[in-house]
Design a protein around this nucleic acid. Structure first.
Lengths: 208, 208
DNA sequence: GTGTGTGAAGTGGTTCACAGCG
DNA sequence: CGCTGTGAACCACTTCACACAC
């Protein structure tokens, strides 16, 4: 059964919350309480969790520890993936150093940039290659996920080159431009300026 | 009539596309063509645009120029807003310098950080204050939108302080933690690690 | 009694299909 | 005839309501 996107997003949040509760020494938690903390309805929490089998105890709640492990397995990756990052500007560097990433699931194994000053150096410990070599390097290192943090104008071309390698399974695109990818490659856009425009729009139309 | 969130997101993308088409000297465009470029169904494009009145010409398509201006007005802000940014780490600096923001809609008027080395200096031309003074500064400068790019652990507290100022209308939260805000304040979460986990999840379950 | 698990109902967004206008 | 505009059908996600297990 296909799990809906909003459900997956919430699973990640349950997982985070349970980690915290575990640190706090909590043993059980109810759908009610999780919902209040995360601003979801309790029924939503129960429905989400029920997709993966009965895990709670009626009249009691969920065991923090076993629910945490349960969701951990659901979100687990089958292997530790190799990730590439193209565009080592401010945003790229922010991603490289991002604390919230769970480093046990993947590692950055190659960076790509057009800047001659960066090519051939290591940035935060990772080798930076020319974007021109992206197809070759992705194939050599068998990289399956690419993060794209180049300006919008450059994104379509470098992604097209990257796709030629045939190793990519997924792309996280931070460039404010709509990309197209072949069937079988997953594309998740993260468009900061769309989010900001949305905020402006709803502030403006608050009273409609 | 309330415009749905996905519709607003697409409007921003139509706007971007039309800007490009205008530069390319294109005069008219069909819902079909816009849909193909942005990977939406043509009927979706027409439905979105129809919410704001009849703007296309039957048998012809949409005038690039007037549709662009039309959406521009829909997305326009009533004034140029003051934005605050708390957490001037790598991500914060990336946001400060982000090229894709439409700078005519807002300007950063204050930065906040805990780092003593940053407080009192200007970063990318903007004054950086202590996070402890956030309530006071937001009120003095009448700041209505806050971008939050601090680590998850620090976000709830600093946001609670910021809300006390009573000037905030919206928050763009990049911290990987669920915040709660009072009625009347808009919260848009941008959670990079959720997006990455989602990508992993669907790559893993591709064949279900 | 308490809190879960879940079919059924409700809500919101997308897609269809075609009428209608240029 | 071509392409928009739009009610109706469809689909997806959320919420309700209650049976059931502890």
């Amino acid at each position: 059964m296909r799990i809906a996107e909003p459900t997956v997003e919430r699973l990640v949040q349950y997982h985070r919350l349970l980690e915290q509760l575990r640190k706090d020494g909590r043993k059980v938690v109810s759908s009610q309480e999780m919902g209040e903390i995360l601003s979801f309805k309790a029924s939503q929490v129960r429905k989400d969790l029920s997709y993966f089998g009965e895990i709670g105890k009626r009249g009691v709640g969920y065991s923090v520890d076993s629910l945490h492990r349960h969701i951990d397995r659901i979100l687990a990756t089958p292997e530790k993936w190799s990730i590439g990052l193209v565009g080592v500007g401010k945003l790229g560097e922010a991603l490289l150093g991002y604390q919230a990433f769970r480093k046990e699931k993947f590692h950055f194994s190659a960076l790509f940039d057009n800047d001659k000053k960066k090519i051939g150096t290591k940035i935060q410990g990772i080798e930076c290659y020319s974007s021109d070599d992206i197809e070759k390097v992705l194939r050599e290192k068998n990289i399956s996920v690419l993060m794209v943090s180049v300006p919008a104008s450059g994104a379509p071309l470098v992604v097209a080159e990257a796709l030629k390698a045939g190793t990519l399974k997924g792309i996280l695109n931070f460039a404010p431009v709509s990309l197209t990818v072949p069937e079988g490659v997953l594309l998740i856009p993260v468009d900061i300026s769309i989010e900001l425009e949305k905020l402006f729009f709803y502030i403006k139309h608050k009273d409609d």
